[in-house]
Design a protein around this nucleic acid. Structure first.
Lengths: 345, 345
DNA sequence: ATGCCAGTGGGTAACGTTCCCCAAAGGTGT
DNA sequence: ACACCTTTGGGGAACGTTACCCACTGGCAT
């Protein structure tokens, strides 16, 4: 096999000629469109198989659809997103649609680049997972192509949303820890200043949910929030600060699993044991939370279900662009593991 | 903002009219093609900005390129692949090319679906990361579109390859453990029966490398390989088997980090300590290997560098499809952490 | 003057598909 | 006999872009 100019690809015209019908007829068969007899369909399908024909998506897109769904996720490294993705692809694998992902993009600029690239490529629908872009940008995207926004609170008439109830998730953690007997339950949040994000981003909701739940459990006076970032390092810094308190917390609710990793590190460094001296809980139930040596108590968001819903909403909207927008809210569950236990004494 | 039919998108014709030039001229400017004066370029670019024009990739693909590079990776969950991906996107971000990923696909069938979808969408080049498909399939893909195969040994005249030297990586681990004083160093490999894969897949090479290195260190008699799979559960099963040996190993070289997780779990369950009773090393230096509570000794493959090379080779080949194929081999390094130490006594 | 060339700009036919029509054939009800 | 449907098939014009060509202009050497 030599690296040389390949033969021309089989086109719809070749199929038509081979089956002795018109290209229009082939097109109808391809799209399961009205106006082709069963015999015609059989004949065309045979020709397609014999020639190994595959339609050119770009050319299709010029007139109709590209049968491509774009998924944008902020960070492939975050082990929570693959769950959602599986839900999306799983729902789509028996359809003609193909899912393509944008490369991980952090920041508004990268998001804009990816969303624009997807629109330029004529994608039929977009799933945006936990986007940080401004509402205006999201609405601009949604105006150009059917869009479902996942993991972001707040609704818009032009796009559908699927979110997990972060307030409830935070409440689950607080209830679990309070139930074990903890009172001094601290929280490490992701610092947020932008007002839109403060209202719409999951991290802000978790923080709110923590406060609400603490009050509901009569623990208002023990509310203690450290504001860093959803990174391992943020967890480490946050934990150091908490451990330096005159009366240190007996439990730490980290806003994300990766934050909990940093907390575990800081706690070990301080010579304290988990959960003997201090309990730690995360959020997202990422793959590594379940790893034996870690075994982190976490909140499970049912990513698969989120993805399934996103796919369903997207197909609905592709079918009818002017139906009113929908919001789906799912409930998280708690995955208790070995990092939480009753407080010392 | 109402959910209604959007306005027609700005096309090259609109730009041409607005700039009072021909569409050909606009096209030349877009492609930086020969035959447009500086003034023409300036005028056209102004019109493009004023109208917010963006070229339609599908239409471009019909005649020329789509400026899209497809990356296929077997599993988004494996935290090693994002490194490679970053290398690819990093090299491409100052070009006009946009990277799109296939959804994680395990198995030949899923790989075939994704590669075909990418070809159907007129992608200009493909990066296939650790594909499991038959050589014949890879060559068929490469015949249709410029292709770089990453993380698979064995070369082909029709595609370029970038691999990390897995034999060397295994040798690094054995040397490290032997240097610490270990003799009974066992290995957990991924079971492989297909002859092509036995020759080309990295896991088989690691296994080979382990044996070679053991012999080179005069430890031939201690060679001990358990054949399971590159999963956490495979590591668990493999470790259970090793721990049941009359003379159990003092060190376990797991063929992948995720395998090492299973090993750690089994070791903890057996009431043994790491690295006190037994040392454990992984492979890939995935993100969680570095997590504080785990701190796993592992082999780092310089994924970023792999990705950069793949992108470079791909652009080269897009520029000249008939140049001879190239093979790039990179060397891994060891990342020693807290799971390895001298053996007991 | 003439021929030639480089530089500049545009006209036009693809590329592969779908969508909007229209035509022919056959059936049904008067 | 007629008008009127329904079913089946195809012709041809888009869709947005680029590749291939040709035409014009000036400058320069003959």
């Amino acid at each position: 096999m030599e690296p040389q100019a390949r033969p021309r690809r089989v086109t719809i015209v070749d199929v038509a000629r081979h089956a002795q019908v018109s290209t229009t007829a082939v097109s109808k068969v391809l799209r399961n469109a009205y106006g082709a007899s069963p015999e015609m369909r059989a004949k065309v399908r045979r020709a397609i198989d014999e020639l190994g024909y595959r339609p050119n998506a770009g050319a299709r897109g010029l007139r109709g659809q590209t049968y491509t769904i774009g998924v944008m996720l902020p960070d492939i490294r975050n082990p929570f997103f693959p769950e959602i993705l599986d839900g999306v692809t799983g729902s789509l694998e028996d359809t003609e649609y193909q899912v393509l992902l944008g490369p991980g993009c952090n920041g508004e600029k990268a998001e804009a680049r990816v969303t624009e690239a997807m629109i330029d490529r004529g994608m039929d629908g977009l799933v945006l997972i936990a986007p940080v872009s401004s509402r205006a940008h999201l609405e601009r995207v949604a105006a150009a192509v059917p869009t479902v926004v996942v993991g972001r609170h707040g609704s818009s008439p032009v796009y559908d949303t699927v979110v997990d109830d972060d307030v409830e998730g935070a409440a689950l953690v607080v209830a679990h820890l309070a139930g074990l007997g903890h009172r001094r339950i601290a929280h490490i949040e992701h610092h947020e200043s932008d007002p839109t994000r403060l209202a719409e981003m999951p991290n802000a909701r978790r923080s709110d949910g923590y406060r609400q739940a603490m009050r509901a459990h009569g623990l208002a006076e023990y509310i203690d929030v450290v504001s860093t970032s959803y990174t391992q390092e943020g967890g480490y810094r946050g934990a150091r600060e908490l451990l330096a308190r005159p009366l240190r917390p007996t439990a730490v609710f980290a806003g994300a699993d990766i934050v909990a990793m940093g907390v575990l590190e800081a706690v070990a460094e301080a010579g304290l044991s988990v959960p003997g001296d201090i309990s730690v809980a995360g959020y997202d139930n990422t793959t590594f939370a379940a790893l034996g040596p870690i075994s982190l108590t976490s909140v499970d968001q049912a990513g698969h279900e989120i993805g399934r819903n996103a796919a369903r909403l997207l197909l609905d909207r592709i079918a009818d662009r002017r139906r009113p927008s929908a919001q789906v809210r799912l409930s998280p569950t708690l995955a208790p593991r070995r990092t939480t236990a009753p407080p010392p004494e």
